[in-house]
Design a protein around this nucleic acid. Structure first.
Lengths: 182, 182
DNA sequence: CGCGCATGAGACACGGATGTCTCACATTAA
DNA sequence: TTAATGTGAGACATCCGTGTCTCATGCGCG
């Protein structure tokens, strides 16, 4: 069994986002490797969490760039953001749920940067009169993370098709659940 | 310092929903009691988590009754549900985030019952042509829990006023973030 | 073939959380 | 006041996860 660093971190994030108390042995089993190997590459739980945090931040930075959220129609930018973020929703769910667990300066700074870019998108949409003013950018950002994480868990538990997740999040965020969209 | 069982559980839920690895000592401090007293009333971490789960389920059952979600206009029923659930959002956040941690049959059954009632409300709204068909009741329920939990954390962190939380969730769930609501 | 390298399995000691205990103190009622 | 009750503080042994180690196996490469 070879060692795929990113795949191991992906499995670890998926597990830890749901069971933060999982032991190193459980994480290793979930990743399909031995505890010894896990410990060779990530010397200690803190190192693993740190690697998860840094990779998660890096992934989100990449996705925000790829989605070009600073450009074009804010509505389409939100759709692109969700489409791009969905493949790394596991990491986002981890970051969103466990950011209070270990407070690493680098992760916090990175997350603040990501959060600011997302908030800026929502502010831009408001300034252009497209997004509602009575929902704050902070709340919209938080809601976006929560919904992406929720959809990731639904997919993980088999309660939602992976192909539908981006649309489910986008449609609810943008249009709400009312049919008439009065 | 007297012992207020429900208040202790409320504090414990608020802490554990954010830091699942919190020690019994931290939980006791957060509740303003000693570890000895905490352990007298909840003999062991499992017992505490179990009590949290059962109380959370009971609270949600009560709130669903109080909101009369089976009656009247589904849209208004959703609003009532959110208004009623918000005061117990701490418990809901705990149940939502940690339901995979300890799998207790009673809690799972209770949660399934709550979930079914909520899903039924969304189905009813769809059947009356009020809610969108392309968002499944399961997803709407999951999204509702996620948003309520997210708002609870925002309030907890001081990023949102407690008085605004119900409206923030209701408006986003029902109408989405688009201003035009085209 | 033999060699190097990474992994898996397991043993071991250490540390922190846990569970249980005792004792002192505060509060309340008789 | 005295007695009863409940709590806080702390000591103590135990358990479990962790970190580190050794050794054997498997696999690719020269």
């Amino acid at each position: 069994m070879s060692f795929d660093r990113e795949q191991v971190l992906r499995d670890a994030a998926a597990l830890l986002s749901r069971r933060a108390t999982a032991s190193m042995d459980e994480i290793a089993k979930a990743a399909g490797i031995s505890r010894a190997t896990l410990h060779r590459h990530f010397p200690g739980r803190d190192a693993l969490v740190r690697a998860l945090g840094l990779l998660g931040i890096a992934q989100m930075d990449e996705r925000l760039d790829a989605a070009r959220i600073e450009e074009g129609d804010p509505v389409e930018a939100v759709r692109r953001l969700i489409d791009e973020a969905m493949p790394v929703s596991g990491f986002l769910a981890f970051l969103y749920g466990e950011n209070q667990l270990y407070d690493l300066p680098e992760v916090n700074e990175g997350w603040a940067r990501v959060d600011e870019r997302v908030s800026a998108l929502f502010r831009r949409g408001q300034e252009q009169g497209l997004f509602r003013y009575d929902l704050t950018p902070t709340w919209l950002g938080e809601a976006l993370y929560a919904l992406i994480a929720a959809s990731a868990w639904c997919v993980q538990d088999g309660r939602m098709a992976r192909n539908d997740s981006a649309r489910m999040v986008s449609e609810l965020m943008l249009g709400g659940m009312l049919r008439s969209a009065s």
